[in-house]
Amino acid sequence: MTNPRAERVKAVRALASRSVRRRSGTFLVEGPQAVREAVGPGAPRVHDVYLTPDAVRRHPEIVEGAHQVGARVRTGTPEVLEAMSPDAQGVVAVVDQVRADLDDVLAARPRLVAVLAHVRDPGNAGTVLRAADAAGAGAVVLTASSVDVHNPKAVRSTAGSLFHLPVVAGPELPEVVARLRAAGLTVLAADGSAPHDLDDLLDVAGAAPAGVPDLAAPTAWVFGNEAWGLREEDLALADAAVRVPLRGRAESLNLATAAAVCLYASGRAQR
């Protein structure tokens, strides 16, 4: 492929639009790391993988993986890949959207789940998903008011973790909380002014007194909007609210950092 203005190139570039993704049921995966994970075992169907000649030489495992999953491999000039995506790094793929069902997630009896409520920033959402994967979470849930996880920036921020664990999108927060609690998970809300200190909970994990959340138990963490956190009505849905202690002079932590700290605390306690 040599023409950056070809219709196929425009069609791939158009996947940056949510409406186009919704109509096609596919999304764009950019960069060698993410595409490598996309052609790995257990990932959704990959339709096409586009690489520059240099990327074909540098990443033979991507080409091999694409052939193994039945994807079409196409070579394009650097100008073509740049026209498809400014973040291509010589490699992009068109992949079926990631869809998981909450029933299936709960049937697997997860011990750690991350719930994103009203999270609008795609970079933050993708980074939380990546942290949840690294901490050993069983699933991530994005409520109806959260960003589309197939947003290009969100996909890039997951660094391939989007293909490692179930991601549920679309349900309302009250339904999610009720379903998680019914499945035996304690629902904790992350909030900067919460009464429970995360470090204190770690100290008593596995032997928490009555009325104190036990981080060693199966847990779902609810994380709120980047700017205003969780609304009062959302906090009221949780079994307890927990704050990350701030030892220095920082006023607060950003969403992704706070989420990583909370998820790793649960992962450590559950070990």
Rank of each mutant, 00 (worst) to 15 (best):
R13K: 06
V176C: 11
A107N: 04
P213T: 00
V105M: 02
G229L: 12
N3I: 13
F223H: 04
A134F: 04
T257G: 01
A217H: 14
N151W: 07
P4R: 05
G192F: 04
F223Q: 00
S193M: 15
R111G: 13
A134H: 11
A154T: 10
R249H: 13
Q270E: 04
A14V: 06
T186G: 05
L253W: 07
R74H: 14
T52Q: 06
R130T: 08
T219C: 07
Y264R: 09
R179G: 09
A154Y: 08
T143F: 01
A125F: 01
A93E: 03
P78I: 03
E226L: 08
N124A: 15
A182E: 14
P195G: 11
R181N: 11
R8N: 12
V35E: 00
A71P: 11
V140K: 01
V168C: 05
A183M: 12
G192V: 13
A135W: 00
P245E: 07
A227E: 12
T127E: 11
G136V: 05
L173G: 02
V105L: 13
R5M: 14
Q97K: 15
P171A: 08
R247F: 15
L255N: 00
S146Y: 00
R21A: 08
P166E: 10
P110R: 06
V73H: 07
T158Y: 02
P44S: 06
R179T: 06
L165G: 04
P152D: 10
G211A: 15
L162G: 02
G138S: 13
H164P: 08
R247M: 14
P152G: 07
P166M: 13
A189N: 10
L180H: 05
A154I: 14
D203T: 11
L116N: 09
A100Q: 08
V29L: 12
A66I: 03
A55T: 01
P166A: 09
G90M: 05
D199T: 15
T52V: 05
V12I: 14
V222Y: 00
A117C: 09
P110C: 10
G123Y: 13
Q89K: 15
E233C: 13
V140T: 11
L235G: 11
S145W: 01
E37A: 11
